[in-house]
Amino acid sequence: MIRFQAGAPRTGRPRTTSWNPDRCPLRRALARGLPPTALSALGTGLALHVGQSLLRELRRTRTIARTAQRRLRPPPRVDGLTVAAVRLSADRGARLGGDLYEVVATEYGVRAVIGDVRGHGLGAFPTVTTVLDGFREAAYDEPDLAGVLRRLERAMDRHLRERACAEHLSAAVAADGHEVAEEFVTVLLLEILPDGQMRALNCGHPWPHLLSGARAEPLARADPHPPLGPFPLPAELPTVPCGRLLPGDILVLHTDGAEDARDADGLFFPLPEVLAAAAREAPRTPQTVLHTVLTALTHHTGGSPQDDIALVILRNERPSPHAPSTAPESPGSTTTGPQSASSQQFPA
């Protein structure tokens, strides 16, 4: 395609600058009388050089993506809980997306976060990083989930202000085509105590499912708070009690991309029915549950999902406690040290 410089006439006086043939390696080779075989070798060498440069850049980009993805991947075991997780991106070929999760062991119990940023693909990853970095810091510092959630709210507000300022807009239109003022993230915070007692705070996210015995039921049915971003959190943030995760029980955390996935006829993916079938399988492990859900999901959608999907499966491998207990009395009573879902499996 021929392009004309903006504002320049398409006809008239020729340009004052002319192409210098001495800058072209092929022209210099011709002037020196090199044989055709040498010219062919020279052209092949130039093509190989360009191809190798592109290949190096592609490998570098994939390495960065893989490294970032590994930071988000939880380890197979966190303080007595076996973990299996996966994240699928709606962008073909992308390893990063708008879904996030993390599982860490703290002195207050095992804490997990799962969330879904508005949008998908690489465009949502800065917000994903903001929420995850905020959680990884607050989960170890705050004695209750309400404090963790308020830290995430402040991190999200700061991120949106900096993003709007960087784009020189007040109610700006972001690079991905929607307004910064409309940016939001759904978040579910979950805490599992040493005796299996669970409590949660939910901001616009789907409730997890509990697989106990041969049943699969929602962990809670309380109305969630609004997502982080558009509206401030309420003054009071009481945690929702969610019963106990008994030894052998499995908890399935997911983003709405799983239950909103459609088939060719527009029917939604029957996630509760698939989880109920997985609860009746033997052996029932996080890996088998994850495999069952992914197989059914791929069959239902016929291939790649239309939205980002994250699944985190937790199984209580702790021995049955002799007596009920509450949060640990002193730091370090439940863990030998701070365990991070990323640092445990992928050390820096």
Rank of each mutant, 00 (worst) to 15 (best):
E179P: 12
V180M: 12
A181N: 10
A181S: 14
E182F: 12
F184I: 04
F184T: 00
F184L: 09
T186L: 15
L188C: 11
L188A: 11
L188V: 14
L189R: 08
L190P: 02
L190Y: 07
E191T: 09
I192E: 02
L193T: 09
L193E: 15
P194G: 09
D195I: 08
G196Q: 03
G196W: 08
Q197A: 15
Q197Y: 13
M198W: 07
R199Q: 14
R199T: 12
A200S: 01
L201M: 02
L201S: 06
N202I: 07
C203Y: 02
C203S: 10
P206E: 08
P206Y: 04
P208I: 02
H209K: 03
H209T: 02
L211K: 01
L211V: 02
S212C: 13
A214H: 07
R215F: 03
A216F: 00
E217R: 09
P218N: 06
L219A: 03
A220W: 05
A220C: 12
R221P: 05
A222G: 10
P224K: 02
H225Y: 15
H225R: 15
H225F: 14
P227R: 01
L228F: 06
L228N: 00
L228G: 00
G229V: 06
P230Y: 05
F231W: 15
F231T: 13
F231R: 15
L233I: 06
E236W: 12
L237A: 07
L237S: 09
L237Y: 11
P238L: 05
P238N: 10
T239R: 12
V240H: 14
V240F: 09
P241Q: 12
P241W: 08
C242P: 10
C242D: 08
G243I: 05
G243R: 01
G243T: 05
R244K: 13
L245K: 06
P247T: 05
P247V: 04
P247N: 04
P247L: 03
G248L: 06
D249G: 13
D249F: 09
L251Q: 01
V252D: 11
V252A: 15
L253T: 07
L253G: 13
H254A: 09
H254G: 07
D256V: 10
D256A: 12
G257Q: 12
A258T: 12
A258E: 05
E259A: 14
E259S: 15
A261K: 04
R262A: 05
R262D: 08
R262W: 11
D263Q: 11
L267A: 15
F268E: 13
F268K: 13
F269G: 05
F269V: 07
P270G: 07
P270N: 10
P270S: 11
P270I: 00
P270V: 03
E273N: 13
V274D: 02
L275A: 03
L275E: 03
L275I: 03
A278G: 03
A278Y: 00
A278W: 00
A278R: 01
A279Y: 00
A279F: 00
E281Y: 08
A282L: 11
R284E: 02
R284I: 01
R284W: 01
T288H: 03
V289H: 04
H291K: 15
V293T: 00
L294K: 04
L294V: 12
A296F: 04
L297V: 06
H299Y: 09
T301P: 06
T301A: 13
G303I: 04
G303D: 06
S304D: 14
P305H: 00
P305M: 04
P305W: 03
Q306M: 10
D307M: 04
D308C: 07
